[in-house]
Design a protein around this nucleic acid. Structure first.
Lengths: 148, 148
DNA sequence: GAAAAATAGTTGCATATTCAAACTATTACA
DNA sequence: TGTAATAGTTTGAATATGCAACTATTTTTC
């Protein structure tokens, strides 16, 4: 029964971690001035410099239609722009506007600071272990096709 | 620059973990037959046996109004019921119906299995370390008031 | 003990998110 | 050239969310 207890503990810990990371309250606004969905998209676009709708939807695990709407909202707020790819006019190239880049940079800075603080508050001798462990957990989760 | 690199790594790992755990795609349906929001509420109610709206909202980090509506949906689908607390008629006691209990049990079973599988696929000699590390991470995150 | 304040929830309003399905436009291919 | 495949958009319908205004009940205050 040892294993069952431990896996339960794992579940609870991850459940709490989800909560703590504020993922649950996928609320309207996140730390910054846009919604979570838009924030995730913005960060993804910022990292890629430019990206197609398909790729963006893929990377965020969303339907194209959902993605298109979220991009709409970002375009409306002048954070990103759409350009037809001249090579293959079926594709749309999504990239940050100047205003979007500003926000992106701001988000990246905040997130960096956030994780720097977290990292700092871990006992130095445990830091390596924590990093390694998340990687291990990540691999373990990766093999599991969720509860479907 | 060592620390910065490591905290970046930490950020990326957590980012990926979020994705992997399917938290990002807070989609309509989760593993079971209800929405994520409803599932979270259902599990919380099931664990508490009975709980007030306030407590429920608090535990899920949601507005009372949002919570009230989610509970509405659960009530409509006959998963939970509301009862006025006779002690203090301002309060509402929320609890599972028979049908709700069934679903709750099902969800708990699936989740248990899911995490059991994850746990099993971690190398035995690393298991303890992973559990400990998440706890450490949790504590570290706990001290950080997000990026607000 | 009555008026005021506090507390628990609900409802109205506006917006965002999500998926599925139908649709348009463009390119590949047979 | 006509058909199939691919990339995106639009529409429809349901849910989610926060804020603000509101009702009902209990507690506090004078």
């Amino acid at each position: 029964m040892r294993k069952i207890e431990a896996s339960k503990q794992l579940r609870e810990l991850i459940r709490m971690l989800e909560r703590k990371l504020g993922i649950l309250q996928d609320s309207q606004l996140e730390c910054c001035s846009i919604t979570m969905a838009q924030c995730h998209a913005l960060v993804e676009i910022g990292r890629a410099k430019n990206i197609s709708l398909n790729e963006l939807a893929e990377s965020l695990n969303l339907e194209n239609s959902t993605m298109s709407r979220t991009v709409n909202n970002l375009v409306t707020n002048d954070f990103v722009k759409r350009d037809t790819d001249p090579q293959d006019r079926r594709y749309v190239t999504i990239s940050l506007t100047e205003k979007g880049l500003e926000l992106y940079t701001d988000i990246e800075d905040r997130m960096s600071q956030f994780f720097k603080n977290i990292y700092s508050s871990i006992q130095p001798e445990k830091r390596e272990q924590v990093i390694e462990s998340i990687q291990i957990l990540l691999d373990a989760v990766g093999e599991e096709p969720c509860c479907k």
